[in-house]
Each structure stands twice: as structure tokens, then as C-alpha cells.
């Protein structure tokens, strides 16, 4: 995997998450991801692997990532001035304007790809609403970047009590649903949306390489067996997944 050294242009807290910006003039599709790490070989023996992150936003010149500090890899990223990133990877959301209004559902740090997705849908003139679900009010601080978004918290401290699905008043008014979050949330979205509407899910899986080589990020599919989240995904049509 080829990594590129980039300077962190800006870092800011977003609720309990971090938004990190770096210059990336290349193309980025909503739903694509990067492998990122604070330092490269030979320093990077621990953590050894880079981490996959969905693009949070990209304005043509500057890309941003949204992440939660969970372990050593993300803790180092949270304070690095220079980081190493791969080129954009994977298959993102397939965007069409024929399905009518779109609902964008995000859970926790899985709200990340909805920012760039919303930007792109606006550019395409596709009407859409954003709904975000969080564990509690402190994490829900990340919703500030999504003006007008509907919100739910599991502990009921902000917005509708419950999951992101509880924040959607009428799911049937949407012709397309795009979702990203923990896999149990995505399974619930798939069940609720049903088979008749376009539903695309960005899955979360542990990754080794990020380029399809290691077969580590296996996702079970309805046609049998597993496919790779990093190459065939991370965005899948809901009906393809065996959840």
C-alpha cells in the first residue's frame, strides 16, 4: 500500500469526536475511505496497521476525516501534525436523482460519510434530510456540523429518545435511504426500509490492508460467502447483505 505524507491543516473537536483536515486535491467520492496513520515505517511497529476512515468531507482541495479516539492508533492521529494517508479507497454511495427525496441516517461516528454525501446530493439537486443518532448529549455535539438534522439519543438527553430510526418521522416519504453506523444499526435500517426502496449501507469492519489483498474485512452476502468491505464496499446495497 502506498502512503502519502500530508500535513494536518486543522484539527477541531466535534462533540467527542475529532475532525482532522488535510490537503488532498484528488477526487473523493462520498462513501469512500482512506487508510490513515500518524507515522509510517519504520516507526510504526505499534500500532502496526493503518486505520480505515470514511471521508467526512472534501471540498475539492481539502479532505477531512471524523474519528473517535478509541485506542493507540487514533490517539496518535489525534495529536499528529503530519499523518500518512492512502489514496481514496473502496466503492462509495451510488447517487441517482431518480429516486426522489433521500434520507441520510448516521449512528455515532458513522455520521462521517453523511457530510460529504449531503454536499454531493446538494450539488446534484437531490432533496434530502439528515438524521443522526448518538449515545448521549456529549457525543451528539458532533451534530453541530449538520444544521437542520433530526436527532435521537439513546439516553434521551437530546432529541428523540431511542435510535436514529426513531428520529425519522415518516420513512415512507423517502425514495432512497443512505446509512452508516454500527452494523446492528444498519441491519435495523435494512429491516425497517424494506426491499422496495433504494437502500445503501456503509458497513464498519476491521481491516488489515485496505486494498483487497488480505480478505480480512469480510462481509457476509446473500449470494453466499463473504465479500471484502474494502473493495466491493464499504457501501453495499442493503439487499446484497446477508444480515
Amino acid at each position: 500500500m502506498k502512503f502519502y505524507g500530508v500535513s494536518v491543516e486543522e484539527r477541531k473537536a466535534s462533540g467527542r469526536y475529532t475532525v482532522l483536515r488535510y490537503r488532498w486535491p484528488g477526487l473523493v467520492e462520498p462513501g469512500q475511505f482512506v487508510m490513515a496513520r500518524a507515522v509510517g515505517w519504520p516507526v510504526t511497529l505499534d500500532p502496526f496497521l493503518a486505520r480505515p476512515f470514511s471521508f467526512y468531507d472534501h471540498d475539492g482541495e481539502v479532505a477531512s476525516l471524523l474519528f473517535e479516539v478509541r485506542g493507540r492508533g487514533t490517539a496518535l492521529l489525534d495529536r499528529a501534525h503530519k499523518i500518512e494517508v492512502s489514496a481514496p479507497l473502496g466503492c462509495g454511495f451510488q447517487l441517482g436523482s431518480s429516486s426522489g427525496k433521500a434520507a441520510l441516517l448516521g449512528g455515532g461516528v458513522g455520521i462521517a460519510p453523511l457530510k460529504i454525501l449531503g454536499r454531493r446530493l446538494t450539488e446534484l439537486g437531490v432533496p434530502h434530510d439528515v438524521f443522526l443518532g448518538f449515545a448521549d448529549a456529549p457525543t451528539a455535539g458532533a451534530a453541530r456540523d449538520f444544521p437542520g438534522a433530526g436527532m435521537a439519543t439513546m439516553d434521551g438527553s437530546l432529541g428523540t429518545p431511542g435510535t436514529v430510526l426513531d428520529a425519522v418521522p415518516n420513512l415512507t416519504e423517502y425514495g432512497a435511504v443512505y446509512a452508516c453506523g454500527p452494523n446492528p444499526m444498519l441491519a435495523a435500517v435494512k429491516r425497517t426500509v424494506g426491499p422496495d426502496r433504494l437502500c445503501q449501507l456503509s458497513v464498519e469492519e476491521r481491516m488489515g490492508c485496505g486494498n483487497g489483498s488480505c480478505n480480512g474485512c469480510a462481509v457476509p452476502v446473500r449470494s453466499g460467502g463473504y465479500v471484502r468491505s474494502c473493495v466491493e464496499g464499504p457501501v453495499f446495497r442493503a439487499e446484497a447483505l446477508a444480515w
Partner: peptide
């Protein structure tokens, strides 16, 4: 079909896989 996930985990200076 291969093994069910999780299939990879990071370790110091390496990784463990069960593909």
C-alpha cells in the same frame, strides 16, 4: 467461504489473521 469475521487483529509489530 472462509472463516466468519473478525478475521484480522493487530498486534505489536504484526497482525493475526484467520481468513
Amino acid at each position: 467461504a472462509g472463516n466468519p469475521p473478525p478475521r484480522v487483529a493487530e498486534t505489536y509489530a504484526g497482525m493475526v489473521n484467520s481468513i
